[in-house]
């Protein structure tokens, strides 16, 4: 098992390197002169030229890339923001807790709503509950979550005045963003749970369990669920990983000071080091979450566990 984990970790390295390369390339070719951005539009040309030389911005592409990788690996330095001059890593780490919080809350809401609904839908297939749940879930998946966020602000902040619409420091602030993310993710989880349960209930071993004289509730819980949850856990993990860097739009709407919003702001202000460092950070985190999900999968499914013994 440990060899498997080690191997996966090693395989992460070229992927991370590749991500760094791609994002570095994209930032390199994005229009905008870093030196001029740092010094401001009004700065003198001579100053700009001098800064470019200082920062090595005229060196060949690969040299710059190599330098970036070396700094990142050896000194844990992924650059400084052009606009605020603070280290990128520091910027990201101050933002990460909010994103983590939002993602965790969102997933919790999603699981609490999604899994029971999916189970009931599956066991009572074609019933009224099932049909309504499926329509609602499909609407949830179809609704752009930035629009949903706006509508929720409209209803709960503007009309009802119950909850604040931006910021993230008090629990009250966290409700709307968590609900926005939570309900969209819940829709996905409901559909997945339902289809996984439906598939499992049709299996022969469920018939065997009934033929033993087992009560229906235990057939569902002990036999069906245990099998159905395996792929669902994967989906939950992947969604969580995605939310750690992909909740860009929700963070923007609710002014959550998270990593995603940092990315959007930095792209707008052409603050390349932050974008580079941020995407790198997100990619690393996402890859780690994927790895953990895979390992978890091996723990939960005895067939996979045997493969890696």
């Amino acid at each position: 098992m440990h060899k498997y984990i080690l191997r996966r970790l090693l395989m992460l390295i070229p992927v991370i390197l590749g991500v760094t390369f791609i994002i570095f390339t994209m930032m390199y070719f994005t229009p905008g002169d870093p030196a001029r951005i740092m010094l401001g539009e009004a700065a003198a040309e001579a100053d700009v030229i001098r800064l470019r030389a200082e920062l090595g911005l005229d060196d060949p592409f690969l040299v710059q890339f190599g330098r970036y990788v070396k700094d990142a690996v050896v000194h844990q330095d992924i650059g400084r923001s052009y606009t605020t001059k603070r280290p990128v890593l520091e910027l990201i780490m101050t933002r990460f807790p909010s994103t983590l919080n939002l993602a965790a809350l969102g997933i919790m809401v999603a699981v609490i709503i999604g899994i029971p609904t999916g189970i009931i839908s599956a066991t009572k297939q074609y019933s009224l509950f099932d049909n309504v749940a499926m329509v609602v879930a499909l609407l949830g998946v179809s609704m752009p979550n930035f629009w949903q966020g706006l509508m929720m602000i409209l209803v709960f902040s503007v009309y009802l005045g119950w909850l604040p619409s931006s910021g993230f420091n008090t629990p009250a602030h966290m409700v709307l963003p968590a609900l926005t993310i939570g309900t969209s993710t819940a829709a996905i989880i409901t559909r997945m749970t339902r289809s996984s349960m439906l598939e499992v209930i049709r299996q022969d071993y469920i018939r065997t369990a009934r033929a033993k004289g087992q009560v229906e509730s235990k057939v569902i819980n002990r036999h069906a669920l245990k099998n159905a949850l395996i792929p669902i856990i994967t989906v939950i993990g992947l969604q969580f990983g995605y939310l750690l860097g992909g909740a860009v739009l929700t963070e923007s709407i609710f002014a959550v000071p998270g990593v995603g919003r940092l990315m959007v702001d930095s792209i707008r202000s052409r603050d390349f080091p932050v974008v580079q460092g941020g995407v790198l950070f997100i990619a690393v985190t996402f890859s780690f979450v994927n790895l953990i999900v895979d390992i978890l999968y091996a723990f939960v499914d005895p067939r996979i566990r045997s493969q890696y013994k």
Binding site: M26, G245, G246, V264, V279
Partner: peptide
């Protein structure tokens, strides 16, 4: 490509 959340990739 998959290591970057798709919305972020598109934005970049």
């Amino acid at each position: 490509l998959l290591a970057i959340p798709s919305i972020l990739l598109a934005i970049s």
